[in-house]
Design a binder for these strands. Structure first.
Lengths: 219, 219
DNA sequence: ATGTTCGATGAAAACTTGTTCACTGTCAAG
DNA sequence: CTTGACAGTGAACAAGTTTTCATCGAACAT
C-alpha cells in the first residue's frame, strides 16, 4: 500500500467522519470548503490519488458516492476513541457493585466459604414486589447444558412456587442442584437437561430454594 | 407514527439495502429504475411521503443524501439499545447475594471449596475496585445474534478500555448500539455479529460507552 | 539545463440529480 | 355526482456535482 500524504489522509478522514456523522458522503465542494481550496480540482486530484492508492473507490459520475476500502496495516492515522460512559438515552441501571457481604441463613450452603460477594442484578417485577431476596448462584457442572446453562454461568434464583417445567434450585443430599421440575400427576421429579444423565430423579422429600429465572453469562 | 404504504415500505427497504450494500444512497433515478417507474416524480412523491411520515430525512438540494430516522419497532437495520423506563416489564436492581457455587450436575467433590476467585464473579475485578458505574442495557434487534446476544437480553456494560474483539456499547448517530470492536493495525472498525449485515463499519471518531462483559437471559 | 511529478488555481464543460409544473386515472367518502 | 386524496406520467428546469482543460510554481531527480 502506497503511503498517503498528509493532506490525502486528512481528506480521507474527513470523508469518513462526514459519513459517520451525517450518514451520507460529502460532495467535492464540501471537501473544498472544509479545506479552503480555491478550486474543486484540488480535491478532485486528491480523490484520484486516494483511489489510485487503493484506499477509496469512486463511483464514476455519481454524486456523493464512494466506497471505503478497509485498510489493513501500516497507516499512521489513529482512530480516536473517547470514553463517555452511558448516554442519556440508554442508561438503565447504575451502581452494579459488590458489597462484600456474607450469605446468612438462606440459602444454606455447606460448600461456600465465609467471605462472599454480593451484587446487584436485575430482577423481575414480581419478585420486587415480594420482599424475599433473590440470590445469584454460580453454576458448576454440565447437567443443564441442553437448557443452555453451562459451567461458569450465574443463575439468578428468585423465591416462589415453581410450576411444571420451571428450572429450580433444589437441595439434594445437602447439595444445591439445578434441575428442571417435572410434575406427573401427584408425583414430582427433577430432570437434568443433559442427555448423558438419567432423565428423572425421583424425590420423596424436596426442598426448593427458588426458581431460576435468569442466566448470566460472561461474554 | 403514521403507517407506511406497501410501496413506501418497499422503497425505504430498498434504500436501506442499497446503503448497506454500496455504502452510498441511491439517486431518485436509481429508485425509479428499480421499481420501473416511468417518471422520477413518482419516486419524488414517495420520498416526500416518507419524510412526512417521519421515517426518512432528506437533505434539501443535496444529491444522494438522506438520513434514516430509526423506527422503534420492526426495524432490523440496527441493534438499538434503549432503556424503557420503569414499567411493568421493567427491570430493577436489587440486592442479591452471591452465595457461592451450585452444582448443575451430580455433586462434584473433586473441586475444593472456597474457589470463588475474582474471575468467577460476574463483574471484573478492575471495575470492582474503583466503584464502577456499570450499567445494564436491554438489547433490541438482532445484529448480534451470531454472538448469542438476542432481542430481549440484558447486557451488563462496564467501563474500561476495549481490546480487539470486545463487544462494546458505542454511540452511532446518537444511538447506542452493540457491536464487536475490530482493530486492524491502528484502525478501528465496528462489526455486527449477524451475517445479514455489513461486515465492517468504519469509524474515525468513536464514542465508547463501555464493554459488554456479561449477557443476561430470561429462562 | 531539463524533464517529471506533485499540489494547486481558474474556468468551463458535461453530466447527474432534485425539483417543479401540468395533466391523468383511480378509488373511497360525503 | 362531486370532492379530495393518492399514485402516476411526461416533460422540462434549475441546481448540484463531477470531470476536463489549460496553466502555474516548487521540489526533485536525471
Amino acid at each position: 500500500m502506497e503511503e498517503l500524504t498528509k493532506k490525502q489522509r486528512a481528506i480521507l478522514d474527513y470523508m469518513k467522519a462526514h459519513v459517520s456523522e451525517h450518514s451520507y458522503w460529502p460532495s467535492i465542494r464540501d471537501i473544498q470548503a472544509k479545506f479552503r481550496f480555491a478550486s474543486t480540482n484540488a480535491v478532485f486530484g486528491h480523490l484520484q490519488a486516494l483511489e489510485r492508492k487503493g484506499v477509496l473507490q469512486r463511483i464514476p459520475g455519481a454524486a456523493r458516492a464512494y466506497k471505503i476500502v478497509p485498510e489493513v496495516l501500516g497507516d499512521t492515522s489513529e482512530t480516536v476513541i473517547r470514553y463517555e460512559g452511558p448516554g442519556d438515552d440508554a442508561i438503565a441501571f447504575e451502581n452494579v457493585k459488590f458489597a462484600g457481604s456474607i450469605a446468612a441463613g438462606f440459602p444454606d450452603y455447606t460448600e461456600s466459604s465465609g467471605v462472599l460477594d454480593s451484587m446487584q442484578v436485575p430482577l423481575s417485577p414480581s419478585s420486587r414486589r415480594r420482599a424475599p431476596e433473590a440470590f445469584a448462584l454460580r453454576v458448576r457442572g454440565d447437567s443443564m447444558i441442553d437448557a443452555d446453562i453451562n459451567d461458569g454461568d450465574t443463575v439468578i434464583v428468585e423465591p416462589g412456587t415453581p410450576k411444571h417445567g420451571d428450572i429450580v434450585a433444589a437441595l439434594i443430599d445437602g447439595e444445591t442442584t439445578l434441575k428442571r421440575l417435572i410434575k406427573q400427576g401427584s408425583k414430582v421429579y427433577l430432570k437434568a437437561e443433559n442427555q448423558n444423565y438419567p432423565d428423572l430423579i425421583p424425590t420423596s422429600s424436596l426442598t426448593i430454594q427458588g426458581i431460576a429465572k435468569s442466566v448470566m453469562k460472561r461474554i
